[in-house]
């Protein structure tokens, strides 16, 4: 297992201490670790287990149960593609395929060059703008496969979308 750095250790200790007096705060602790460190690495889980005395197996159980948690770092561009009902009716599948083929990776994984992490999400609640995607938190509505290809091309060229 990769060794935890001293900076990471400090972050984790602070987060665990912050939630010391809250009951049932396991999920908020893990969420905050992911927010600050980008993902929940196995070595982070071991450290949380040690500090909170919650068995690592239980923490793994939580991290793998909830779709929000990532065990691996994320690519340079985090592309979330909505596959809610309205987006599905508006042709989200074609949009998703266009992103997969032009970014060179599948939903749920990161491209080899580390440029893109693609993720299919249930609903972003922007149904009137369907199909919707978000790049690093910035939402793009009324997507088409064509616009998707173009966006990926721009991002490959070092565009600054959503940054």
């Amino acid at each position: 297992m990769v060794q935890i750095t001293s900076e990471q250790l400090l972050v984790i200790e602070q987060i665990v201490n912050k939630y010391r007096d809250f009951s049932g705060a396991t999920i908020p602790i893990l969420q905050e670790i992911q927010n600050q460190l980008g993902y929940v690495a196995p070595q982070f889980i071991e450290k949380v287990a040690e500090l909170t005395e919650i068995p690592a197996s239980e923490l793994y159980g939580i991290v793998t149960f909830y779709s929000q948690f990532r065990l691996e770092p994320i690519g340079e561009n985090h592309i979330q593609m909505c596959h809610g009902t309205a987006c599905h009716l508006a042709g989200a599948n074609a949009v998703i395929e266009a992103f997969e083929s032009s970014a060179g990776t599948k939903c749920g994984s990161t491209s080899k060059d580390g440029k893109f992490t693609l993720e299919k999400v249930a609903c972003m609640g922007c149904c009137s703008l369907a199909p919707v995607i978000s790049v690093n938190g910035k939402i793009y509505g009324r997507m088409t496969a064509e616009k998707g290809q173009k966006l990926v091309r721009e991002l490959k060229g070092g565009g600054d979308h959503g940054k």
Partner: peptide
């Protein structure tokens, strides 16, 4: 925890 895809009442 408004999880139904296509629903955004609670969010609004």
């Amino acid at each position: 925890d408004e999880g139904d895809p296509g629903a955004f009442m609670d969010r609004s």
